[in-house]
Simulated scan of single mutants.
Amino acid sequence: MHYIRKAHERGQANFGWLQSKHSFSFGRYLDPKHMGFSTLRVINEDKLSPGQGFATHGHRDMEIISYVIAGALKHKDSTGNEYSVPAGDIQRMSAGSGIMHSEYNASNSETAHFLQIWIQPKLRGITPSYEQKSIIQTAPLTPLVTPSGEQGSVSINQDASLYRLQLTAGQTYDLQTNHRKGYFHVISGSVEADADTFSSGDAFALNSEQRVTLTAKDQLEALWFDLPA
């Protein structure tokens, strides 16, 4: 493994209405050792209190992905999109030349738990766009986001793909990068890899031409990023 990022080592922010854990430097948390990996720049694990959220603010030249773990998000942006994003859905917003948006917990009684993911774009200054889908798991490793929206996935302005991995206890799976790079982030459950155990919030990265065999210790849900070398 090229890089290991344990959950308890992440940066943290607690604003009362928002609790956030930062895999990479973000906001007030700055660590030169953790500035991203390949084109992957941000993974924030956020928990929004009922009825709370991010007021209207701007982004540009970033591919922003939301993966809702529990609850639902209420999204509204300056291009006219206004949607609820329930648990299990994948949402991609290409900020491009500039977009204003807000994101709130859609519930007034339950916490919204989600991952906010930023990937640097391939082309800058493009027309902002939005895409959201509910994707059924068709194999242990199922594509959620791909450059051209292959196999019913959401598209992205980058030579990068995001997959959801689901394994049952005792099931194994091989991950390999070939001429690419890879980043693995555990959402829930635990898995053994290279004699180390990775649980919720833990992550590791692989460089080009690396391979690892995963063995699920219990029901596992994780994300696998296939990234440019």
Rank of each mutant, 00 (worst) to 15 (best):
K122E: 12
A112G: 10
W118K: 12
F114V: 03
M93H: 01
G98H: 03
A106S: 08
K122V: 06
Q120S: 13
R92V: 15
A112P: 06
A106K: 00
I117T: 10
S94F: 07
W118T: 12
N105P: 08
I117F: 10
I119Y: 05
M93W: 04
P121C: 11
L123I: 14
T111W: 14
E110K: 05
T111F: 13
Y104M: 06
F114D: 01
E110M: 07
I99Q: 07
W118R: 10
M93P: 01
N105M: 02
H101N: 07
G98N: 09
N105C: 05
L123D: 05
H101K: 06
K122P: 01
K122Q: 15
H113I: 05
T111Y: 12
L115Y: 13
A112C: 13
L115H: 07
S102H: 03
M100V: 00
A112F: 05
N105V: 00
T111L: 14
W118N: 13
I117P: 05
N108Q: 14
H113S: 08
A106E: 01
E103R: 04
K122W: 09
S107L: 01
Q116Y: 08
A95C: 12
M93D: 01
I119W: 06
Q116K: 07
G98K: 05
P121S: 11
M93A: 01
A112W: 04
W118M: 14
F114R: 02
E103S: 06
K122A: 14
P121R: 11
E110Y: 04
S109T: 15
T111C: 10
S94Q: 11
S97Y: 02
S109N: 13
Y104C: 00
I99F: 15
I99K: 08
A112V: 02
A95N: 11
E103C: 06
S97K: 14
I119T: 04
R92H: 10
S97W: 00
I117R: 06
S97C: 13
E103D: 01
K122C: 08
H113P: 04
E103I: 03
